[in-house]
Write a protein that binds this DNA or RNA. Structure first.
Lengths: 227, 227
DNA sequence: GGCAACTGACCGTCCGGACGGTTAGTGTAT
DNA sequence: ATACACTAACCGTCCGGACGGTCAGTTGCC
């Protein structure tokens, strides 16, 4: 059963998604979407309660797709080393093959994030994070990975992949696959158990940075004064 | 010479920065800033040409600080392994100690990015990127790092650090220093020359992801139809 | 006739910016 | 010292325009 007259609901969300990816949420008005589709503004608000609910649906659809995919391809591989790479490939390939939604999702990641209307989206994001965290935990447990903090490493992974919305160009010098390859290489080698790990000296370095920041924080305040 | 009457210019930019960090550029109106400071809207537009120029100055100040710091602390260390870590520490510590500006900068990173008014900011960002890329290139050259793509690795570093604006809490479970430590650990071990590197199998994994995405891309279109 | 898709006119609100006018410090000539 | 010119900081008001959202009504399929 379902649709009597062919609804343009899907088209509306699609167009909205592309525009948000291009310009950002508040630079897209309901008017813009209506005009681009040659329909009236009322039609959009007939299908969607509000502009905010359009973004909510955008986020929801995006997370639903990523979760469905992840559950599917993770089932085909047991090794956490494989599974973690799958996640990186997924996030980078979605930059290419699900570009508009991915960019829109990443650039508006915090918009309405705390609102009640976004609770479903929050739950899905938590589920996805848990998925990745668990992969890393299992990798550590079975001895493939060093004793890293699983949650923090997951955030590191999300960062390197999600941030690429700011610079990745599908037709650019690097393909999504190449980027994923390099990111995997670094990430997997970086957390794989190996002897001995490179010797670092964080405290000395961190102190040097703090000193430099103190020195230049003074610049701001002293600039307008003097004389 | 200099200031006749004590100007509130600095306060305006500071308040604007905090509000943009909190809510984002278009959720902050010039009125909001004026009211928060108990001054008139006219005063703000007396000091700054436009709202856009406030953001431009925010970006400019942020990049100027980071560049000045970087030039200073990099001069104290020769080894690219040290230098690369310094960059990670800088970016994470600025999340803690220069929080408002860092968050505002990261969340509005693309706003007006192509505009003429932002050409200075673009130049500074290019300079900073070149700095980091060059560190990695030297590390590879001298044999500390594997043969990675320096620019791509720089983007990976920026991603993991910059994205943290979306989740980092100064009073949260991890301190900025701990995060930087872990990120350095993974990144440095990940790109350090080591024998043999973990064996990966990108093509099989990437294919599994593409298959899963194809399968679930169909969901969208089939959902409204059927029956 | 019932129902969903859709229209288009309309509201109240808020925004960025412009503008003319006022106030308070500073340098200078007397 | 004091009168004057100048400048920068600051205020309050106004405006055109765009925004999200509402609603009564029309169309066309079952």
């Amino acid at each position: 059963m379902a649709t009597v007259r062919k609804s343009r609901r899907g088209e509306i969300l699609q167009c909205f998604t592309e525009m948000v990816a291009e310009r950002g949420y508040d630079e897209v008005s309901v008017r813009d979407v209506a005009e681009a589709l040659g329909i009236s503004k009322g039609t959009i608000l007939h299908h969607f309660r509000s502009k905010e609910s359009l973004l909510e649906e955008l986020h929801g659809d995006y997370m639903r797709r990523r979760l469905a995919e992840a559950h599917e391809f993770l089932a085909g591989f047991e090794d956490p080393v494989d599974q973690l790479q799958l996640i990186v490939y997924q996030l980078m390939i979605s930059q290419r093959d699900d570009r508009a939604a991915t960019v829109a999702f990443a650039r508006e990641i915090v918009r309405f994030a705390g609102e009640d209307s976004m609770s479903d989206v929050r739950a899905m994001r938590a589920e996805y994070s848990a998925l990745v965290t668990e992969i890393i935990r299992r990798g550590t447990e079975q001895g493939s990975f060093a004793d890293v903090d699983p949650s923090l490493t997951a955030l590191q992974l999300f960062g390197m992949c999600n941030w690429s919305w700011t610079w990745f160009e599908p037709a650019g010098a690097w393909s999504a696959g190449q980027i994923a390859d390099e990111f995997c290489r670094t990430l997997i080698d970086g957390i794989s158990r190996q002897a001995p790990p490179t010797e670092l000296r964080g405290e000395v370095l961190a102190q040097a940075v703090v000193d430099a920041m103190k020195a230049h924080a003074a610049d701001e305040l002293s600039a307008p004064a003097g004389g």
